[in-house]
């Protein structure tokens, strides 16, 4: 029998949101704990690297530094400190960078967000477009071409694509910059500055997106082919709708639902992909920050970046679920 229409209740959505956040707390704590102990398995600490870089240091000096940074404490004491700091939402201090971890992360976050969101947009638009074209021309040459490109796309390692693009577009053609986010020397402001950032953005975004374009193209193709034969698409055609509208409103609208799920789930992989890309292109983002923290044994910073990224993934999954319930009326948050 017919059910009442869904209550457009913000209160229910809010309750759902609260519940999901509550559920995320143990996840995040578990991640924090595991990170803390796993990172301690690696030999060497901050003081070792600092001493190494200084060329030489006396054992006494190193012991003093360890005492200063609290590294002389037993592991579990450090752990308790770490937890109590976390409870106060304090991610700690990066002795190496002489600033708080949170400040460091927040200063890098916009750059990473810019890189990731641009890549995601390119991947979605490119992948869905290619997949739709492939399905439209199934078994013909455009389909074969797209499918060949996709295969290359997800068989090629990220860093290699990045390097090859640099060789081609920066070294040989000299069209685009090889790395960084701006031309620091030029000291541009306003619109020229934005254009400069955009120029720097092209290669890293493209490198990061290639893999996802390939995945989304494949998924879209198969989803479109599946939805195309469903009854309601036939109903739409029986109305006399133009093929373009049938495709956009009836086929794609339904075919994109699984892709939304996939995108949410892949947010984490995209984040780790950006570590590689940021390193290759010297992009001053969080990935690069994490990478440096590993080599400097800056555990506080590394823990902070990891925890922060985990939270990002948890939040993005939550957003995906909410978005999904907006896109698919059959799914009601409760």
């Amino acid at each position: 029998m017919s059910k009442p229409p869904p209550v457009a209740g913000t209160s229910r959505a809010l309750r759902y949101l609260g519940l999901r956040c509550l559920q995320a707390v143990p996840t995040v704590i578990a991640i924090a704990v595991l990170n803390f102990f796993f990172l301690r398995l690696a030999p060497g600490d901050l003081v070792d690297t600092m001493a190494g870089e200084a060329g030489a240091a006396t054992p006494e000096y190193m012991a003093m530094l360890r005492q200063l940074y609290g590294l002389d404490q037993p592991v579990w004491t450090q752990f308790l400190h770490y937890l109590s700091r976390l409870a106060h939402l304090d991610l700690g201090y990066s002795f190496r960078n002489s600033t708080t971890v949170l400040d460091l992360i927040l200063s890098r976050l916009p750059n990473t967000a810019l890189l990731m969101l641009s890549s995601l947009a390119v991947a979605l638009v490119g992948g869905v477009a290619l997949g739709t074209i492939g399905a439209r021309w199934r078994g013909r040459w455009p389909d074969a071409l797209i499918s060949a490109i996709s295969t290359v796309g997800f068989a090629t390692p990220l860093f290699w694509i990045g390097l090859m693009l640099i060789v081609l577009f920066s070294v040989h053609l000299r069209w685009l910059p090889a790395g960084g986010m701006t031309d620091v020397e030029a000291g541009r402001t306003g619109l020229p500055y934005l254009l400069d950032v955009a120029r720097h953005l092209v290669l890293p975004v493209f490198s990061l997106a290639v893999f996802y374009v390939a995945i989304y193209a494949r998924m879209t193709r198969s989803a479109v082919l599946e939805v195309r034969d469903l009854d309601f698409v036939r109903t739409a055609r029986a109305k006399g709708l133009a093929p373009r509208k049938v495709m956009a409103r009836h086929v794609l609208r339904n075919a994109l639902l699984p892709i939304v799920t996939m995108t949410g789930l892949q947010f984490g992989t995209l984040l780790s992909g950006s570590v590689v890309i940021e390193t290759v292109f010297a992009w001053p983002g969080m990935g690069r920050l994490a990478f440096d923290a590993v080599f400097q044994r800056d555990l506080n910073l590394l823990l902070g970046v990891l925890l922060f990224s985990s939270c990002l993934v948890v939040v993005s999954n939550l957003c995906t679920d909410l978005l999904y319930s907006v896109l698919d009326p059959r799914i009601e948050v409760r």
Binding site: L230, D231, F232, R234, T235, A236, R237, A238, K239, G240, L241, A242, R249, H250, R253, N254, L257, L327, D328, P329, R330
Partner: peptide
Amino acid sequence: MREMRGRNIGMIFQEPMTSLNPVL
């Protein structure tokens, strides 16, 4: 033919459960 469909010929299908778009 598209102009005929809907305007001059209407169609009713067998499966009411699947012949409407679930997200509209």
